[in-house]
Amino acid sequence: MLENSVIGLPKAAVIRCRFWDDECVIYNQFTGETHLVEGMGAEIFKLISEKSATRTQLLQTIHSVFELETGFDIEDFLDNLILQYQKLGLLDVMENSPA
């Protein structure tokens, strides 16, 4: 679903992230809401708060940090997570246009 996507923080500087251990707290300036993000979600934001990342890069990071159970559909899980964060306005999903 998101195979050719680049995931990054919203271009307008409305998101503030703070990281502690394996958790992350995100403040959305547009909505005034504060979100606690743990586990895989925190890893996603750790990566994209430095630089936008492709879905493939996110998957590589998750594979390197977490031991996933055999048969666990990580790609589907990641896509759903990204779409949920997108709905909350915490990240942007952009099409990865060829160079």
Partner: peptide, 29 residues
């Protein structure tokens, strides 16, 4: 208590966290 959870609890206990907006988040952090 984990720092992230402490942050959320503090935000709930503030009188003017929402008024201060991003400055409030920075101060709590």
């Amino acid at each position: 208590l984990s720092k992230s959870r402490a942050l959320l609890k503090i935000a709930e206990n503030c009188f003017n966290y929402n008024i201060l907006g991003v400055q409030g988040f920075k101060s709590v952090s």
